[in-house]
């Protein structure tokens, strides 16, 4: 049971961070379908820090890992920002390209690194067994990690920023009616850049949180197995509101955790269901949830539409 709670919290914090990233981007009017790729890049950034700065003490290590993933995530999200905001490109296509690009680039890069150190090592895996200890926190019987703390801080910060600050309200205006926002002197392009960069920041953090959840090495060939898209489902289920997104993330985190630990529950094992069913569960539930939540969608009105100053 404690293992279930532990995994639920870990996965929920990952999903929440990434979904919140998507939320900021969409409130500014840009659909970030490249979150999956942003996660891979953030994971790569954090993993590289762990690989090359393994000598650091716990706290500096933690800070550097977070910084590494944030920087990688934000730089990578610029790919979306430039294409979608400056060049008015199709956001779905750009997102798809980014997802493919991130996994391919990370694989090529990590394989090249591994081969440089040891010519016989052609894997795309980075190990961080020792370094991972800096991230985890032991609290009673639980092994938690710092990303949960970050997730809670992010929740509080996002509620304040989105609804209580000038920046947040302006950001949301750009996603609802950019022409109106522009008419009162808000720079729509700047706001959208901010939205996308914040999604890169949070997505990158989510990426490193994901690859340190329960495992101590990561094979970059596998990307992040659709987690970025699950996060988007969480965001839609949460109706683009931070608090609701947090609750949705808890539900999906629980489902995802079940596939890791269901063998520990006699009741579930006795059902005799195939293990693949538990793997599929988050995806199936998210489809159901989307079918329910999408009809009365509270999506930002102008999301996905490139902003054209001359348009009425």
């Amino acid at each position: 049971m404690s293992l279930l709670i532990q995994y639920t919290l870990i996965y929920a914090s990952v999903l929440f961070l990434v979904a919140l990233g998507g939320c900021f981007s969409e409130h500014s009017g840009v659909i970030n379908l490249g979150l999956e790729g942003v996660m891979v890049m953030g994971a790569l950034g954090g993993a590289l820090v762990m690989k090359y700065m393994s000598g650091l003490a716990a706290l500096p290590m933690m800070i550097m890992v977070v910084l590494g993933s944030i920087v990688f995530g934000m730089i990578f999200s610029l790919f979306l920002a430039i294409a979608a905001i400056n060049f008015k490109a199709d956001q779905t296509l750009v997102g798809t390209a980014m997802n493919m690009l991130a996994t391919a680039a990370a694989t090529v890069f990590v394989k090249a690194l591994n081969m440089m150190h040891d010519p016989n090592n052609v894997s795309s895996t980075i190990q961080y067994i020792k370094q991972k200890k800096a991230i985890s926190v032991h609290l009673g019987g639980f092994e938690l990690n710092w990303f949960m703390v970050i997730a809670i801080l992010a929740l509080a910060a996002s509620v304040v920023i989105l609804y209580r600050t000038r920046f947040g309200l302006r950001l949301m205006a750009c996603g609802e009616h950019p022409q109106a926002a522009d008419s009162v002197g808000i720079n729509v392009y700047k706001m959208r850049y901010a939205g996308v960069l914040i999604s890169g920041l949070l997505g990158g953090l989510g990426g490193i949180a994901y690859i340190t959840a329960g495992v101590s090495e990561w094979k970059f060939e596998n990307g992040v197995a659709g987690f970025g898209f699950l996060a988007l489902a969480v965001m839609i289920f949460g109706q683009w509101k931070p608090v609701n997104i947090a609750l949705a993330a808890l539900l999906f985190g629980l489902l995802r955790a079940l596939s890791n630990v269901y063998t520990g529950f006699h009741g579930l094992v006795a059902l005799g269901l195939p293990s693949t069913l538990y793997n599929m569960l988050p995806y199936i539930i998210s489809l159901l949830v989307l079918a329910i939540a999408s009809t009365n969608s509270r999506a930002p009105k102008a999301e996905g539409i490139p902003y054209d100053k001359g348009q009425r």
């Binding site: 790919f79 294409a83 490109a89 390209a97 493919m100 391919a104 394989k111 010519p119």
Partner: peptide, 24 residues
Amino acid sequence: MVYASQISDLILAIIIYFCSFVFI
């Protein structure tokens, strides 16, 4: 021994990315 075969995936991904600029 030097490169990953995924290099072709990388090239393709870059091609798609640039394809999104075709309209402009």
